[in-house]
Structures are given as structure tokens and as C-alpha cells.
Design a binder for these strands. Structure first.
Lengths: 350, 350
DNA sequence: CTGAAAGCGCTTACAG
DNA sequence: CTGAAAGCGCTTACAG
């Protein structure tokens, strides 16, 4: 049957083979398994490839080779700069192994999980890295059922059977409380992340553990609702300012909220850290440029990406993953800056 | 010849065809050109597709159909949240037309342009959107030679023969100067972007035009070097503070630098806007949370993405693009906030 | 170490 | 409106 007449790919493997005086099989091997060829043959092919400017067609290679050399990264919100460094780490490690990277942005829309399933079902990728804290699903079907190599990073998925890499959220949150207590604070508020989020759960648990450890009744602490956004921080500030017996310190479950809160209470005339100390979480770039500079925890973002990608490569290659590797928890670093300090002695000025 | 024994795709088009009692051609048509089928046939196929959970293999479809339904977006730096909204706009428009999106992050590394060329040469995408202000090239070969549909947005590429969408950088920068002049400023500094960058060139030109328009000698203005980073802002602040006859206002070529500058001069004890007014460019989210809130220009980021993607779809479809569409320049909006105000009358305090 | 040939899973021009 | 069959451009098990 005749074919359509759209322009075809400029150079095909056949042309390279003809120019080099070898079969297409040999050209293919020269590109994928050069060690299987004799040096002179390899050289002739390499020369022909260079002269023709040949690049193998990706679709054909994927179809025939049954692997795409592409990994899907599921991100809850590409707009959050936090993920940029993680993605960079993933990309660095993946490209070392010859893999490309497809970004699936959920944009915080649950319905987009169906698209993730489709991409995988369509055979578009060899593995998936989840940064979104849950296994995507669509009408009862879940990603795990599809039998594709999987890894979760940043936001852990409790009980999952695949490798995971996260940071010590609980320990860090506890350390935040310890830091504030050591400065003399006893009335400490917690500005929460969205309900059900694993980071929120772990950081809240660490916060409570920190209080308990310091002999402070959790019932005496204030819990402010939030959702990780700047806006949640300013909203929480309004609630905070209206409180009768205001805490002298606040630990926010992330930096955006800490910054929103900081801005709003400062605008209201409170001094930081005199009237209220603030501690955030994440160590986003912006935290260095607020006034006062935010005390926070620096996450090993790049390392999270590299580690997670490395694990996925192992799974995709069928390399066994040691149990201690399969559930890693990286440390975070407390950066003590100007936003936290001793509470003003005695009462607050009118 | 026998094949390898890796697990194959769960459901193929043949199974669906068998279940529906039609040929594979009909299944294919049902999915791509449903209007060519009779309703009952379509219904039978649709039912079979649903029951089998069939999703067409992307590699096979691309190989045979000679189109991938994927667009490559070349981003200079994925870590810059500015691009997140633009990408969202692109994605919104592209997905309306059935296209997926592959992100090529240059990470400000020139050598990565070679990867862009490879992706295109490998037939991996049907079109390219450039956000990086130049046509990627590698050892003499440029992307334009590859004959792939192309569009540039955000950062224009002068003299290019493909459609472009940018904002009125020159006019906006001029308006920034007008704003400052109207407040009473006469000594105004410009904090520049990286050399050779088109945004830098246009904004600088607008700055100079604004001065000229106000009857201020350009030679009397101060030009501080920068590169669009927070750090460049703090570095420029050091230079600014050391100046003998300090300007009373500064226009930064982007918000990051404006914020870095703001933070550093504030730490040095200057009051804003009393001692120095500051105007940025872009309207990043963070600009709302610095103290004082930054006067800046809000870019129509989402619209930039939507417009650019829409143009690319036209080019890919062979739809003619009207000349006035082919070179669009969207307006930006000046947000007057607390970082700009009248200069303090008389001398500055010691 | 190298080649001939099958076949990955689809789409589409042709025929009916 | 639907089907039979070619073929997209590669890779790989088999044979030599």
C-alpha cells in the first residue's frame, strides 16, 4: 500500500549502514553495545554516524526495545520552587544513566492522577518517581497495579512496598521546639499544613513530642490551621493576633506560611523575635531575604532527588535494593537566624 | 526469530478488536476519527475499550503516525518560579489540543542546547516553544535548520522568522521611570540583567528612554551590574551604598534583584522609600511579602503561555498565522506599592 | 564478530 | 462504512 507523503526523518539507520558498509544490525550495536564490535568496524560506523548526523528515532527504539529510557516524575505543584532543586537532583542522576525525564504536574488537582495512569499504561515511561505523597489512582485502578517500577521521595507513602526517601521530619520538628524552649519559650504555637498530608502529620507529631519532652502540656499549645501557602500564613496571623494569651513563639510547618505569618504580624506592629519568634521548615531561597531572616531547616533537596533517582534506576534494572536502602530518611539542618530569639522578659508593651 | 521474554503490554489493539468483533483498523479509527464510524460500531468498540482498559501504545502510535503529540518547552531555568505560571498556561492550551509537554531545562548551561537538538532530531516532539531567548545550537547546527515548528515566548529572538510573544518590556521600563519621576525623583539608578539578554536590553532601553523623556541626562544615571539573581541585588546594594552622591531611586530589571537590593540596603539602615525607592519587574509571588511590599510590574504569565502554545498549535497544523499574530507584545501592569514614594526632601540624615 | 530477518503495536491508503 | 495488509524505524535472538 502506498504511504502518505509527509517528510520523513532526514537520516535513517539504513543510510548510515550503507555509508559504513555494514548491516543495520551493526549500526544499532555500535550505538547500544559498542563493546560487541571490533574496533575497526566501530570506527567505520562512528565515522558514518558523524558524517550523516544520524540520531536514532526514539519511537522506533522504544517500540522495538520495549523500553523508553524515560522516567515520569509526579510533582504536586511545579510552581513550588522547592521542587526545582529536587528535580535537578533527579535529572542529574537519571541522565548519568541515560534516562530522560517527563514531568507530571498534578497542580494540586486530584483528577490529574488519571493522566498519570494513562502515561504509564501507554508505555511512555520505564519508571515513576512520586513526590506527591500518594499513589495516583483513577476509578479504582492504582498505579501500583500497573507493575511499573516506583519510588517515592520527599513525601513518604506509609505502608508502600516500594523504596522511599524522605527527611527526618519528626525529629526536625522536635528540634524546632527544643530550639525555642532553649531560648526560654514555653507558649509555642504550631502553624499546620493541610489535613492528611504526611509532612503535616510528621511535623505535628514532632512538635508535640518536643513539647512533651520539655514538660509542656500539649493542651496548652495553640494549633493554627494552614495549607502550606503564603496566604495561610497571613490568615493564621490574624487568628494569632486575636488570641488572648498569645504564644511567644511559632513553628510553621513550612517556610511559605512562616513568611506570610512573619509579614502579617510585623505589619501589625509586633517585633520579631521580641514579641514572637518564628521558625519555618524547608529553607527556600526566599527565607534568606525576609526581614528578619528566617530560622528554618534546610532540606537536602538535591540529595533527595539523586538518592531517589538512584533507587529507581536499581529497581528498573532489577538490581536488588537492600532493606536499609529501601526506606531512607535523610537529615535536615537547623539554620538559626534572626527570626528566633529569647522572648521579651515580663509582659508585652501595650 | 524468537523474541525476548519481557512482559508485554497488558492489552493490545488486537484484543480489543477481537472483543468488539471488528478489525484493528476500526478500533484505531474509533479512537482517532470516531466520526468516520457508524454509531453502533463505535459503541461496540467503545465498550470493548472500556472493558479491556485499553490504552494505545505511544511509541507505536508515534512511529506509525509520524507525530508524537508532544511539544518541547525549552526553559532557561526551571528553578525560577516565574516560569511555573507560563508553563501552566502552555500546558492548559496544549492539553486542550491533545498535546503533551516535555520540559527541556537548560539550567543556564549553554552546553545543554545540544540535548535539545538531539530530542528534536530523534523525532521525539512535534514542535518547540523557546523561553530562553535564543535558538539552541550545537556545533554549527541550529534548531531552525531542523525544520520543526517553533515559537518563542517571554524572551524574544530578534529577527527570527517564527512567531513570538513577549511583553512590552521597553514601554514598561519607561513607565517605571515615569512613575519615579512623577514622585519627584531625578537621580535614578538602573540595576541591570545579564549582558546580552534581550530582556535586559529592552528594559535598559526603556529606562534610558524614560530618563530622556523626563529631560534627565542618561550620563547622570547610575548603572549597576546584575544577572537577575537575589545575590546580584545584594552585591549591587554594596556598590550603591558606597556611592558618593546616591540616587534616590532604583529600577531593577527583575524582582529577585530588587528584593536582594531591598534587603541589603535596609540592613544597612536605609529607609525605603524615604532614602531610596525601589521598583522591580515581573510580579513574583514573593514581591508581596517583602517589607515594604515591592512596586513592580505584573506580567501576564499564564496568558503568555496560552498565547504562545496556541500559535505553535497553528504552526504545527499548518494553519496560517496572521502577521499581527506572529509577533505579539502583551501589556504589563504597574503595581504601585510601598517600596516607591517621594524622595525625602533635602539632605539625608547622617 | 557480523548479517539476515522478524517483529515491536500501531495507522492509513487502498479496495470494496 | 469497514477490512486486509503494508510499513513506520529500529533491536535482537538466531545463525554462521
Amino acid at each position: 500500500m502506498s504511504e502518505d507523503d509527509r517528510p520523513r526523518q532526514s537520516v535513517g539507520i539504513a543510510e548510515v549502514a550503507a555509508l559504513a558498509g555494514v548491516s543495520t544490525a551493526t549500526v544499532s550495536r555500535a550505538l547500544s553495545n559498542p563493546e560487541k564490535l571490533r574496533a575497526p568496524t566501530l570506527a567505520r560506523v562512528a565515522d558514518a554516524v558523524r558524517r550523516t548526523g544520524y540520531t536514532p528515532n526514539v519511537a522506533a527504539r522504544s517500540l522495538r526495545g520495549r523500553r523508553t529510557m524515560v522516567v515520569l516524575v509526579v510533582v504536586p505543584d511545579i510552581g513550588n520552587p522547592f521542587f526545582a532543586d529536587v528535580l535537578q537532583g533527579i535529572d542529574d542522576e537519571l541522565s548519568r544513566h541515560g534516562y530522560g525525564l517527563l514531568i507530571g504536574n498534578l497542580a494540586r488537582v486530584r483528577a490529574k492522577e488519571a493522566e498519570i495512569l494513562e502515561i504509564v499504561q501507554a508505555g511512555q515511561v520505564d519508571g515513576v518517581i512520586l513526590l506527591n505523597g500518594r499513589v495516583p489512582e483513577d476509578r479504582g485502578r492504582t498505579l501500583t497495579e500497573l507493575g511499573i517500577p516506583l519510588v517515592a521521595i520527599c513525601e513518604a507513602i506509609p505502608g508502600a512496598a516500594f523504596p522511599q526517601v524522605e527527611v527526618r521530619n519528626r525529629e526536625a520538628a522536635q528540634a524546632a521546639v527544643q530550639h525555642l524552649v532553649s531560648l526560654g519559650h514555653r507558649r509555642i504555637a504550631y502553624l499546620a499544613g493541610p489535613d492528611g498530608n504526611i509532612l503535616e502529620r510528621d511535623r505535628r507529631a514532632g512538635f508535640c513530642a518536643g513539647l512533651a519532652h520539655a514538660g509542656i502540656a500539649v493542651s496548652a499549645a495553640s494549633f493554627l490551621a494552614g495549607d502550606f501557602s503564603f496566604r495561610a500564613g497571613t490568615d493564621a496571623a490574624a487568628a494569632f493576633l486575636a488570641m488572648a494569651d498569645r504564644p511567644t513563639a511559632l513553628f510553621a510547618a513550612n517556610d511559605e506560611m512562616a513568611i506570610g505569618f512573619l509579614k502579617a504580624v510585623r505589619d501589625a506592629g509586633l517585633r520579631i523575635p521580641g514579641d514572637v519568634s518564628i521558625v519555618g521548615f524547608d529553607g527556600i531561597a526566599f527565607a534568606d531575604y525576609v526581614d528578619p531572616v528566617l530560622t528554618t531547616f534546610r532540606q537536602p533537596r538535591h540529595a533527595l532527588g539523586v538518592t531517589g533517582a538512584g533507587l529507581l534506576v536499581k529497581v528498573m534494572n532489577g538490581t536488588p535494593v537492600a532493606p536499609e536502602e529501601a526506606c531512607q530518611r535523610l537529615p535536615v539542618e537547623l539554620l538559626v537566624r534572626a527570626s528566633s530569639g529569647p522572648p521579651r522578659g515580663g509582659r508585652q508593651p501595650p
